[in-house]
Structures are given as C-alpha cells and as structure tokens.
C-alpha cells in the first residue's frame, strides 16, 4: 500500500485509483475532511460552494454508473496553478512532487482555481465553523484555514510530517513511509499510493487500462486511474478516441 521515499532522494508521490473497485460510498471524502480539519457544511453550503478536497463524481455510462474520486492531481509538468499565483502561495515540493497550497500566503484571488482544469481547488467562502466543542477533535497535525483562502488536497501532508517526526525520533535518517487518509479509508482498497520514482509502482501506473484525466492538456497529473470497462474509460478520460470506443462497447 505504501511505498518508501528516501529523504535526500526525491520522491514523486502518486496515486492509482481503480474505478472498477470504487463503489462511491464517500468514505474517502469524510476521512479526508476529518484528517484535514475541513469544517462541516454551513447551513447554506451547496455542492458549488462546499469544501471538499476529494469529490466522488457519479458518472453515467452506457451500462451502470461509475464513481470517480477526483482530488488534486498534483500535476507535474507545467503545473497550471503554480505559475499563476501572484504571490508564490502555490509551489511544487521538489522532494515529494506534492503541489502545496499555503493558505497563510494566499490572497484569495482564486486565479489558481480558474487555472485548474480538474476543479480540485475549493475556496473558503466563509469562516469555518465547528459545532461547539467539536474543535477539540481537530487533527493537531493540520491547521484550520481562514475564510477567503483557497485550499486543496496535498496528499495528507500532515501525515507526512508525522512520519518524518517519528523517523527523526528513532534517529532514522533513512526512509519515511506514510499513507494518505483516503487511501487508508477506502473500504474497497480502490486507491493505491506510492512513489512514481519506484519502478514497480510506475509500471503499474502505466499498465494497460490506466489513464489520467485530460491527458492531452499536458499537465502531467500524478493521479492515475484504471478501469477494465471501455465505456468508463470513454466517459471519464476525456480522450476522444476512448469516448468513441466506449460508445461502441
């Protein structure tokens, strides 16, 4: 489930999501919110103003529907959101490949959200609020975000921090390993997390049936999807050829 990354040696964390396994239960969404201190919805929140770092789309196909979890793709090439931020609140960590969004630096201009083709970024339209007392149950490894800032999935960086700290405590200078919350939560084990610099994992990501969302855009996502169903690949991948094949099947 979890691959190793060596500090000093750069990692390129990535995910492979098996769409044939995902049953759209939403456990990843809730586990993510708990792990990353995303507040519960406000009374007036809607799917359009809501805060979700990962969202499970229900996609109708010619046969039965498919469920597609979409989080930040941690784009590797020409990361669309990094170059647009006017004040360097977004960066790509060269040692992990994770695209970081720093709410403390964020001006709230939302230009990065306009730039993201995956709509993986969400905005704090209002002050986050927890029911009285529930703030005691927040995760100490992740800080809460203010209103007026953008946030998004960062492959559970709080867990990465915790792993680094634990390794340091044991005096280890070698490798750390960790598992993002959604990966741990998925009851169908549909999400696999690993280091794309690891040959075995990379081969899996490139295996037949695997694809990335909107690949022709050239954004180089590090989240891969796989499915054995042609109609799902057609409806999800955004590839014109695949869409035609999907309709035929």
């Amino acid at each position: 489930m979890t691959r190793r990354a060596t500090p000093g040696k750069a990692a390129r964390y990535g995910m492979i999501i098996d769409l044939d396994r995902c049953n759209g239960c939403g456990a990843c969404m809730i586990a993510c919110a708990v792990e990353n201190n995303v507040p519960p919805p406000d009374a007036k929140a809607t799917p359009r103003t809501g805060l979700n770092w990962v969202r499970v789309f229900r996609v109708e196909t010619a046969t039965r529907p498919a469920f597609v979890p979409v989080m930040c793709m941690q784009c590797g090439d020409e990361t669309p959101c990094v170059s647009v931020c006017p004040q360097n609140a977004v960066d790509v960590d060269p040692s992990t490949g994770v695209v970081g969004q720093i709410p403390e630096r964020c001006l709230g201009c939302r230009y990065c959200m306009a730039a993201c083709p995956y709509q993986a970024r969400v905005f704090n339209w209002r002050d986050p609020q927890w029911p009285a007392g529930m703030e005691q149950a927040l995760n100490p490894n992740v800080s809460a975000r203010q209103r007026g800032t953008v946030e998004k999935c960062n492959f559970c960086h709080g867990r990465w921090h915790a792993a680094v700290e634990a390794a340091a405590n044991e005096g280890k200078t070698g490798s750390v390993s960790y598992t993002p919350a959604c990966v741990e939560a998925c009851p169908a084990q549909a999400i696999e997390f690993g280091d794309l610099n690891d040959a075995a994992f990379a081969a899996k990501a490139r295996a037949a049936g695997a694809f990335r969302l909107l690949e022709p855009l050239g954004t180089g996502p590090k989240v891969y999807y796989r499915t054995g169903r042609a109609e799902v690949r057609g409806a999800v991948s955004g590839l014109i050829e695949e869409a035609k094949n999907g309709q035929r099947s």
Partner: peptide
C-alpha cells in the same frame, strides 16, 4: 473587495511570482 484577504494584498509586491500574469497586472 473581490479577493478573500485584502489585508494581504501587499504580499504580491513583497513576494511576487514573476511568472504570474496577475502579478504583472498588479
């Protein structure tokens, strides 16, 4: 008014991202 955190607007001058069109605009 349109940005979420106007009190941080000066960050663009202090920590500008040279690649950003928005920094250029500002």
């Amino acid at each position: 008014v349109d940005v979420g955190q106007p009190l941080r607007a000066w960050f663009t001058y202090w920590y500008p991202n040279a690649h950003s069109m928005l920094a250029e605009v500002t």
